[in-house]
Computed example of a mutant assay.
Amino acid sequence: MTGLSTLCYIEKDGKYLMLHRTVKKNDVNKDKWIGVGGHFEADESPEECILREVKEETGYTLTSYRFCGIVTFVSGNGVTEYMHLFTADGFEGEPIACDEGELEWVDIDKIESLHIWEGDKIFLRLLAEKVPFFSLKLVYDGHDGLISAVLNGKEIKK
């Protein structure tokens, strides 16, 4: 099975807006901290998807954002997800409560200490280093264990 999704890290004052996924049942991201985003609807481009998902989950309309890369997640459970990764540094609107968990502004340098996916640490470092557009493949063992990470076709982690 294959899925298409987007994820955005909205930045303000040295913090990212993080979503603590605590609500959904049978959520692969249950209790993890992630950016905001979600799955494509019919005929959407990555940009249309991220604008819609951010608005639905946060109440914000993005005014300045960047498409940073594609992350291929291989779950080990027969599911592959192609996630389109964005950052944003401009937005407007009033925040709303998110029905998927709690939204919280977190210092960027403290995010790695949160309960996040091991592979997320890799692409968060790439974002921090302002690496140009990249392709990252993350292979998991069916649980939380990261088996391999391949950046732009070259293995970086076993």
Rank of each mutant, 00 (worst) to 15 (best):
D144G: 06
G59N: 04
I10V: 14
E81Y: 10
I70Q: 08
L138K: 00
D107T: 07
N77W: 00
K130C: 14
D99C: 01
G101E: 14
G38H: 09
V74A: 04
V28Q: 01
D107M: 11
R66L: 02
M83I: 11
K158L: 03
F73Y: 13
L124N: 09
I111D: 05
M1G: 11
E100C: 13
T61W: 03
L114W: 04
E118H: 00
V79A: 02
L7K: 06
K121A: 06
W105S: 15
I116Q: 02
W105E: 14
W105R: 13
K12A: 02
P132S: 13
E102T: 12
G119D: 05
E129M: 03
I70T: 05
V139L: 00
E41Q: 10
L103H: 08
G3N: 05
G35S: 07
L85W: 12
L138R: 02
F91K: 07
G153I: 13
L7Y: 01
T58K: 07
K24L: 08
W105K: 15
D27W: 03
H39L: 07
P46A: 13
G153C: 13
T63C: 11
Y60M: 10
T22M: 15
F40T: 05
V106F: 11
D144M: 04
L146V: 08
S45R: 00
V106I: 15
H20Q: 06
D89L: 02
I111V: 15
L62W: 04
D109M: 15
G101Y: 07
K137F: 03
R21L: 07
V150H: 03
G3F: 06
I108W: 06
I111H: 09
F40N: 04
L136N: 00
I111F: 11
D141Q: 06
F134T: 01
T63P: 09
L103S: 07
P95M: 12
I34L: 09
E112Y: 15
C68P: 06
V54Y: 11
G35P: 12
A88L: 09
G35V: 02
E94A: 02
H39A: 14
E118K: 01
T87K: 12
E57K: 13
D43F: 13
W117R: 05
L124E: 11
K130S: 08
K121G: 02
D13L: 11
E81V: 15
N152Y: 05
A128C: 04
E129Y: 12
G59Q: 12
E104W: 13
L127I: 15
L124K: 01
G59T: 10
V28R: 07
V131N: 10
T80W: 12
F40H: 11
I116R: 00
V71T: 00
K158V: 07
R21K: 12
L7W: 01
I96V: 14
G37N: 04
L114C: 01
D99F: 08
K32T: 04
C98H: 08
F67P: 08
Y65D: 05
L126T: 07
G93Q: 09
G76R: 07
H84A: 10
I111G: 01
G76A: 11
D109W: 13
R21M: 09
N152E: 10
P132F: 04
K30A: 14
S148L: 08
G153L: 08
N29G: 04
S64R: 13
G119H: 06
L114Y: 02
C8T: 14
E129T: 12
L146D: 05
N29L: 04
T61N: 02
D89I: 02
